[in-house]
Structures are given as structure tokens and as C-alpha cells.
């Protein structure tokens, strides 16, 4: 049974950015259709607050509209950049509610090794990422999720789980080594 069919004849991200820079509103709408689902999912997972997730989602795309000229598609990936911004904003929002969580994350250029421009590619990558995480040992996966979705550092994870700091560091290092092997094309 095939659920996803059809060919992808849509504009590339780089072409969309160019059109957004040229104040083409339909290009922003297209970028929204392409990536809002991904961003909405991660925002809701982190914040567990649909109102806050909605505000940040809108704000991210408004930022894209205002600052698209600064985005260099040859140096970085649009979905990568959007996902980093979404996660950073969501974690920052959590930190406002919990100031002890630490200082602001830095937004950098983001390079994705995979193209996520089509729905098919996104679905394939979602399967790959879920598979890679599910194959991690339980404690490693839990540590990764605490770091990524809750924005916890090594020592905060140790405090949360009650595990020694060294153990947490070893788990996270092993986890990112494995993810790096499994997520690279």
C-alpha cells in the first residue's frame, strides 16, 4: 500500500528564500506549508503549551520574512536553521519560567546533510531519526531527550536522574557518537 505518491516539482529552499527576499508573500506561505508541521511538532513537544507554541511558530516565520536577506542558503540549511531557532526559542521560553536553567543558547549556521524539501524526504528522515533513537540503549535515549527537549545540561540531567555526573557524560557522548554514525547519509 502506498500512502505517499507523486513527484516533487516544488521550488527549492534557495529559490524560496530568493522570492521571500523579493517580498513574494506566496513564497513565505510555501515555506510555511513545507516546514510548519515539523516546527509545530517540536515546539509542542518542548513547551507542552499550544498557545506558546503557536506564538513562537508565527514569530519564527515572521523573522524569516524580515531577515531572509541575511540567510545564505549556500552556507546553511533552511529547515536546519528553522529547527534550531524553534528549539532555542522554546527552551528560552521554558527558562523564563525556570530561570535556574542557565543562559541563552547561541543561534549558529546550521548544515543539514539531508534535503528535507519534499514531504517524502521529511517522512523518510522522520523514520530514520526515530529508528536511530529507538535503537539507543534506554538510558542514553532518555539522556538525549532530556538534553534536547528539556534543554538540560550534563549536570542538570545528573541532578534530575540522580545518576553520577560522569555516567551522564559517558551516556551522552556514546549516544551522540551512535547518532552521528546512524544519521549521516
Amino acid at each position: 500500500m502506498s500512502v505517499i505518491t507523486g513527484t516533487d516539482s516544488r521550488a527549492s529552499d534557495a529559490a524560496l528564500i530568493q522570492r521571500i527576499v523579493g517580498r513574494d508573500e506566496s513564497a513565505l506561505a510555501e515555506a510555511y506549508d513545507r516546514y510548519a508541521g515539523m516546527l509545530s511538532s517540536v515546539l509542542n513537544r518542548i513547551l507542552r503549551d499550544t498557545q506558546a507554541a503557536e506564538e513562537i511558530l508565527q514569530d519564527i516565520f515572521f523573522q524569516l520574512w524580515r531577515t531572509a536577506a541575511n540567510f545564505d542558503a549556500s552556507r546553511g540549511s533552511l529547515p536546519g536553521w528553522l529547527m534550531v531557532i524553534a528549539r532555542n526559542r522554546a527552551i528560552s521560553r521554558l527558562r523564563r519560567h525556570n530561570p535556574a536553567m542557565g543562559d541563552e543558547l547561541v543561534e549558529n549556521t546550521v548544515v543539514l546533510q539531508s534535503n528535507l524539501e519534499s514531504n517524502v524526504a521529511q517522512q523518510q528522515m522522520i523514520g530514520k531519526v526515530k529508528g536511530a533513537l529507538e535503537n539507543l540503549p534506554k538510558e542514553q535515549r532518555a539522556a538525549i531527550e532530556l538534553a534536547y527537549f528539556e534543554g538540560l545540561t550534563h549536570s542538570e540531567i545528573a541532578q534530575r536522574t540522580g545518576d553520577p555526573l560522569g555516567t551522564v557524560k559517558t551516556r551522552l557522548r556514546s549516544a551522540v557518537e551512535t547518532l552521528k554514525r546512524n544519521l549521516n547519509p
Binding site: 508541521g37 515539523m38 509545530s40 511538532s41 517540536v42 515546539l43 509542542n44 513537544r45 518542548i46 507554541a53 540549511s77 536546519g80 529547527m83 534550531v84 524553534a86 528549539r87 549558529n108 549556521t109 546550521v110 548544515v111 543539514l112 546533510q113 539531508s114 521529511q122 528522515m125 522522520i126 531519526v129 526515530k130 533513537l133 538525549i144 534536547y148 527537549f149 551522540v176 547518532l179 552521528k180 544519521l183 549521516n184
Partner: peptide, 15 residues
């Protein structure tokens, strides 16, 4: 950054 950003894709889909 790109590798770690992909962890976002493991979030349950929320339209």
C-alpha cells in the same frame, strides 16, 4: 547543529 537539530523530527506529529 544540523545533526542534533534532526532530533526534533522524533517529536510526535502535531499539526
Amino acid at each position: 547543529q544540523g545533526r542534533m537539530a534532526m532530533i526534533a523530527l522524533a517529536a510526535p506529529y502535531s499539526p
